[in-house]
């Protein structure tokens, strides 16, 4: 366990030593909440949805965390897959390397979530702050899973990052209140988390089913991420 913590710390330092990564960690949530939210409302109207301004602002914080964590999940896995595998083969083992990658991704995801949450809080105020915080964390978990899965399936950095963006775009523009419903809207991975965040922004409670649904998808995504990290690091013997 202590091995995974030590290695996870090194992986985290590796990510934070890129000045652009750190700058984007702050810039993207601010951009999404302050600018993207307004555009999102206009898109929703064009697509037949009824996303109100307050709801659009709330959900944009979730999308900010999702966008960052999708990219982080993908590049956590993609950028160092050969070195990770070498370390696992040297004796650390694939599960410890996967655990370390997971820890690093979760730490960065938590920072992304916190910045998105604080930006949202400062921008508009939230009726149910704890609900919003948890909902943003669900977005984070779900997109760490999506990013890592894309990284495990696709070797090319351009192809893989485009795949993450494609999933993200479909998710955003098919999500709750964005369309008149049906089709993709019923199966998007963040549907329940988005409903929770919209409700939290406007001070409404959410049914237990949505909490359980979002939690199940979030935990499932983290399991997928762990398996993706393990798959890449494992021995082929």
């Amino acid at each position: 366990m202590s091995g995974a913590v030590e290695v996870g710390g090194a992986f985290l330092r590796e990510q934070l030593r890129s000045p652009l990564n750190v700058a984007l960690l702050f810039a993207i949530p601010v951009f999404f909440v302050l600018i993207f939210a307004g555009v999102l409302g206009e898109f929703a109207a064009a697509l037949g949805g009824d996303l109100a301004e307050q709801a659009a602002t709330s959900i944009s914080a979730g999308w900010a965390a999702a966008f960052l964590c999708g990219a982080l999940g993908f590049f956590q896995l993609h950028s160092s897959r050969e070195a990770d595998r070498r370390l696992a083969g040297a004796g650390l083992g694939a599960w410890r390397v996967a655990g370390a990658r997971m820890g690093s991704a979760l730490a960065l995801g938590a920072v992304a979530s916190l910045i998105a949450y604080l930006t949202l809080l400062l921008r508009s105020g939230i009726e149910h702050p704890p609900h919003a915080a948890v909902a943003i964390l669900f977005f984070t978990a779900i997109y760490i899973g999506i990013g890592a899965l894309c990284g495990a399936l696709v070797r090319g950095s351009l192809e893989g990052s485009l795949l993450v963006v494609l999933v993200f775009s479909l998710d955003v523009f098919s999500g709750p209140a964005m369309t008149s419903g049906g089709g993709l809207a019923d199966v998007t991975p963040t549907r329940d988390a988005a409903n929770l965040l919209i409700a939290a922004g406007s001070g409404k409670g959410s049914p237990a089913g949505e909490w359980f649904g979002a939690a199940a998808v979030g935990v499932g995504a983290l399991v997928v991420a762990l398996l993706a990290f393990w798959t890449v690091a494992r021995s082929r013997r």
């Binding site: 030590e6 090194a10 330092r13 590796e14 370390l87 696992a88 004796g91």
Partner: peptide
Amino acid sequence: KLTVAEHFALFARAY
């Protein structure tokens, strides 16, 4: 992004 010393530390742990 890791230093030479950090590489030695990681592999010492692995070995």
